[in-house]
Every structure is written in C-alpha cells, then in structure tokens.
Simulated scan of single mutants.
Amino acid sequence: MMPILILAAGAASRMRGTDKLMQDVDSQPLLARQIQIAQAVSTDVRVALPPPPHLRYDLVAQTTAHPVTVKDAAQGMGASLRTIFATLGPQDTHAMLLLGDLPDITENDLRQVQQAIRTHPDALIWRGATEDGRGGHPIIFERTLFPAFAKLLGDDGGRDIVKQAGNKVHLVPLPGTRARLDLDTPEDWAAWRATRHIT
C-alpha cells in the first residue's frame, strides 16, 4: 500500500491567530477532511505535525493516521519533508505527498494521480496539475528519489527534486485549479466560502 504523506506542520502565520487546518470544510476541520480522503485511498497515512502540544494532535488521534513530529518545523517545509520521508522503508516503492491545506482536492484526484503510475510507468514523478497545466499536488515520488529529501534545507519545498527529474515528471490535469488552490489568509477563506455559498 502506497503511503500518503500529509504536510501539516506549518505555523499558518498569515492567518493572524487562527489555524487554517482547523477551518471548517464540508462540516469538518480541513485537516480531518484531508486525512479522510487520503484514508479512502491508502491505509498508510502519515501526518507531519509541529512539536506538541498542538490541537492538530487531538484531531489526528481521532483517526488511524500516524502523527509524525517535525521537531524543527519552524525551519520551514524542507524540515517537514526531511522528517516525513525519513519514515519510509525499503518496502515503499512510491510515496504520495499531499499538502494539508488544499480545500478542493478530492479522493478521486488522488486516485487519478495514482493511476498514472500504471499508464506512464517510465516517469519518476507523477504530479497533479491545474487544467491549464501548472504543476500542483498531490505528487507521487518513486523511491529512487527518496534520499534527496534528506538534503533539503530551510523552506525548500522540493522544487529542485522535481526540476532534476526533468522529462520524468508526468502531469495529471485535475479540474479547475484545485491542485494548487491553498488559502493562506482570512480574506482567502472568505472569498473561497463566497464562491461555495458558505456563510
């Protein structure tokens, strides 16, 4: 079973005191929703979290997902990627990376990207994209790329790893912009809710 690695260790500082991963989406906290759709695809879901105590641990504890503490989460996304990819073992041939803050991503989107491994087996990276071809999430990495994550520093989100894969990156277009749509500020959330007629 392919592990799904959810990044949820960020401070969400632009939310000005509220936690975007605890925002209500489809009548549940966003992070709970992300875990739910991931668990519909894989029984091995791991969630990168900031050091405890943190409310996100209570949420993850209500699921069968595995919490992974990122001790140096304040250093940025590179720390989260280093830590969570280090949990993978030799039996893991692929791993799917999913951001915790994509409110429109669906279970079917994850399945579509996963199916691309079979249809395009020569790739090393299979990546969700917008309708117009901009790379986003989820992203599946083949195991020969796993060691590169141990070298990430600061807020490096792994862009160099994707870049170095060159023509071995296969993009999977998903509807609209949901492969990239994240909401970083209260204003972003208000605008998004307005489009969904949520009050």
Rank of each mutant, 00 (worst) to 15 (best):
Leu102Tyr: 11
Ala129Arg: 06
Arg118Pro: 00
Arg127Ile: 03
Asn108Gly: 12
Asn108Lys: 15
Glu142Gln: 14
Arg143Pro: 04
Arg143Phe: 00
His137Ser: 14
Gly128Asn: 03
Glu107Phe: 06
Glu107Asn: 11
Leu102Pro: 12
Ile117Lys: 02
Pro121Tyr: 05
Asp132Pro: 03
Ala129Trp: 07
Val113Pro: 11
Ile125Asp: 02
Thr106Ile: 01
Leu98Gln: 03
Arg127Cys: 12
Thr144Gln: 04
Glu131Arg: 11
Glu142Arg: 15
Met96Cys: 07
Gln112Cys: 13
Gly100Ala: 08
Leu102Asn: 09
Leu97Ile: 09
Arg118Asn: 13
Asn108Phe: 13
Phe141Ser: 03
Ala129Phe: 02
Arg118Lys: 14
Val113Leu: 04
Met96Pro: 12
Met96Gln: 09
Pro138Thr: 04
Pro121Leu: 04
Val113Gln: 09
Asp101Met: 00
Arg127Met: 13
Thr144Glu: 04
Thr106Asp: 05
Gly136Tyr: 05
Ala116Leu: 08
Ile117Arg: 15
Ala129Lys: 06
Ile105Asp: 09
Ile139Pro: 03
Ile139His: 05
His137Gly: 10
Leu99Asn: 10
Asp101Ser: 09
Pro103Leu: 08
Arg111Thr: 05
His137Phe: 14
Gly133Met: 00
Glu142Gly: 08
Asn108Val: 12
Pro121Asp: 01
Leu102Asp: 04
Gln114Gly: 04
Ala123Trp: 00
Asp132Gly: 07
Pro121Ile: 05
Ile125Cys: 07
Thr144Arg: 03
Asp101His: 11
Thr106Gln: 10
Arg118Val: 05
Ile140Pro: 09
Gln114Trp: 06
Gln112Glu: 15
His120Tyr: 10
Glu142Ile: 04
Gln112Ile: 00
Leu98Arg: 01
Ile105Met: 14
Leu102Ile: 07
Gly133Thr: 02
Arg143Lys: 10
Gln114Pro: 00
Thr130Gly: 12
Pro103Asp: 05
Ile125Trp: 03
Gln115Pro: 00
Arg111Ala: 02
His120Ser: 10
Arg118Phe: 06
Met96Asp: 11
Asp122Gly: 13
Gln112Phe: 04
His137Asn: 15
Leu110Gln: 12
Val113Lys: 10
Ala129Cys: 06
Ile139Tyr: 01
Pro138Trp: 04
Arg111Asp: 00
Trp126Leu: 07
Gln115Arg: 15
Phe141His: 07
Thr106Val: 01
Pro103Asn: 07
Glu142Lys: 15
Asp132Tyr: 12
Gln114Lys: 13
Asp109Gly: 11
Gly100Glu: 05
Pro121Arg: 02
Ile139Phe: 03
Gly135Glu: 11
Met96Ala: 07
